[in-house]
Design a protein around this nucleic acid. Structure first.
Lengths: 121, 121
DNA sequence: CCGTATCCTCGCCGATACTG
DNA sequence: CAGTATCGGCGAGGATACGG
């Protein structure tokens, strides 16, 4: 079996919503990172993306699929299984995303400080 | 005098709205790039950001200011002048943004192809 | 010149219930 | 398990008018 996704991988210790850098919609960036090391099932993705509704996850995945970043494979039968995986194009997104994540990790404290010092906190 | 901003610098030949990578809100990324080589006045920014309303530009600038990415300097007097400039923190954003732009320029045709090939166009 | 003040529309996204 | 259907709140952002 493959390694399960860490349920806390998006625990907002460093709140990623703080970073000005965003990938696609609210969930797209996190989805791509979940798929970094191989395909994942719909229900697997829901674990680390705490609070995502089926509707929102579906919509995000459909957009990623439409743009050729993610591939959807449906294996029918009882106990149906659907797997999502990065395409080569989707995989190529990981490099700029790494740069974005590195920036956020280096600077999110400065961002927080600036916000608190600001009159509009 | 400093070089004026190219009015066509965001002419959507390669539609940047296509890229899944975004900086802040709709205008923030373009603003940062406009400020890359030095301070700019409010009205200067409106030229390349065609179609931006004063309200939208103000809001975007206020957010960038609150987050410590942009500094606002108001020089009073008749024929009032307000200039916006990147802070060091804002300047540090240019590196990950360059990675994002490079990705978009390399892959936007693949994105378009994928969209057109998709049932949901 | 540099904004603010209103009004309006549109689409994201959560909540909830339901289906093959 | 992997979605779809429906409702509704909320905020982004454009249009327009006005103010210091």
């Amino acid at each position: 079996m493959r390694t399960p996704l860490d349920p806390d991988m998006f625990d907002p210790v460093c709140p990623s919503g703080l970073s000005p850098i965003r990938i696609g919609d609210k969930w797209a960036g996190m989805i791509v990172r979940c798929l970094e090391h191989g395909p994942r099932r719909f229900s697997e993705l829901r674990v680390p993306l705490r609070g995502v509704t089926a509707k929102a996850l579906t919509k995000s995945l459909r957009t990623l699929e439409r743009d050729g970043l993610v591939h959807r494979a449906s294996h029918p039968g009882p106990g149906r299984r659907v797997e999502y995986a990065l395409t080569p194009l989707g995989h190529s997104l990981l490099a700029p995303m790494a740069a974005a994540c590195a920036w956020a990790q280096e600077h999110w404290e400065e961002l927080l400080d600036a916000r608190e010092a600001s009159p509009h906190g």
